[in-house]
Amino acid sequence: MAKYILKRILYLFLTLFIIASITFFLMKLLPGTPFSNQNRMSADQLKIVKAQYGLDQSVGVQYVRYMVGLLHGNLGTSFQFNNEPVTALIGQRLAPSMQIGAQAMILGTVLGILLGAVAAIRKNTWVDTLATFISILGLSIPSFVLAVLLQFYLAYKWKIYPVALWDNFQSSVLPTLALTALPLGTVARFMRTEMVDVMSSDYIELAKSKGNPNWRVVAKHALRNSLIPVVTIIGPMAVSVMTGSMVVENIFSIPGIGEQFVKSITTNDYPTIMGLTIFYSFLLIIVYLIVDILYGLIDPRIRLGNGGKE
């Protein structure tokens, strides 16, 4: 296991390196410089600014510099936002994003598991149909549409929650809800398929033949076996929550990294875009790694894989 994790961490760095390189060169491909539209600057001023960002050097030198910086955890300096280092920007803005992201993931997963399990247990009844319909809605309605609707009705019209504000837990409710739909739908659907499969398996039959009452069959055997694979979709779910958070943060004016990312895009702040891209990828790879390890820990077939006596 330790060897496996080590190998994975090595891959992690390799992947990050490739992503960083691709991002870097893509950004260099861009026509013009980020300052070309600021014609208020004189040629001299431009030169100074360029030198300040190291843009007067050759692309090769810039690349090596950027990579060395990365190794030291330096993601470059923003063109906008008071020329703050990108790492500092991320540092200030990580907490709100993490909060709503984590809330949405947890809420979505828990509700999704419940919904999926109920649908599977009541397979082919109206309960199942309703649950399936809810999960399809969750999967299909984009989070930004949901965000706008929630904002309009729950905040603006009925004044239950703040419209766009970031201070206490109250203000995180609506963005969390908007982001919850997708993980909820995904998990519910996955859980249902998984559990229907498990419920028709031989070992469930055996569990019934032991005299287990229905609730006990579900609680002791079916749930655990269907829950384990749900772990594998945490990764893709994290991606969709990240994606969603970019607009949702924007709509609710939450000072998070998603909002930052969109702002950087609209202001052509390349260092920040680059830095955030690498940071997002890093986050994601870490999530995937953790999920893999977690899966190994909770599934006895993998956990004791090498001790097996097949």
């Binding site: 398996s201 031989d202 070992y203 039959e205 055996l206 569990a207 033949s209 002791k220 055997h221 655990r224 076996n225 384990i228 599934d299 006895p300 077939r301």
Partner: peptide, 12 residues
Amino acid sequence: FQDPMTSLDPTM
């Protein structure tokens, strides 16, 4: 049951 390979709960 017929199939011993699948009759036991793999996680218990």
